[in-house]
């Protein structure tokens, strides 16, 4: 029930914040989801969808952080290996 993966908003219908719906593409599978809880979401954004509702917008800058963290780890390792 909870295996939600992020999907990309392809189009949005409706203006009323409570009934705004989006067509969301999950790697090729397109589903309708309510955008009532992500009033700031726009076409092209990635959202996490659960039980037909977008619950959160995926922040692209934050999404990079784990990879930056790994890169730092690698550089630290290189430094250690190089030794004093």
């Amino acid at each position: 029930m909870c295996l939600a993966i992020p999907g990309k908003i392809e189009s949005i219908t409706g203006d009323d914040p409570l009934s705004r719906m989006g067509r969301i593409n999950f790697g090729g599978i397109v589903k309708e989801a309510s955008l009532a809880y992500v009033p700031e979401a726009k076409v092209g954004n990635y959202v996490i969808v659960h039980a037909g509702f977008a619950l959160s917008r995926v922040d692209e800058d934050e999404a990079q952080k784990v990879f930056e963290y790994l890169k730092q780890m690698e550089e630290l390792d290189d430094l250690k290996e190089a030794g004093p």
Binding site: M1, C2, A4, L18, S34, A36, Y37, H50, A51, G52, F53, L55
Partner: peptide, 10 residues
């Protein structure tokens, strides 16, 4: 859980 409640609530 709290993930589904917003959907049933709506």
């Amino acid at each position: 859980f709290e993930t589904t409640a917003p959907a049933t609530g709506m």
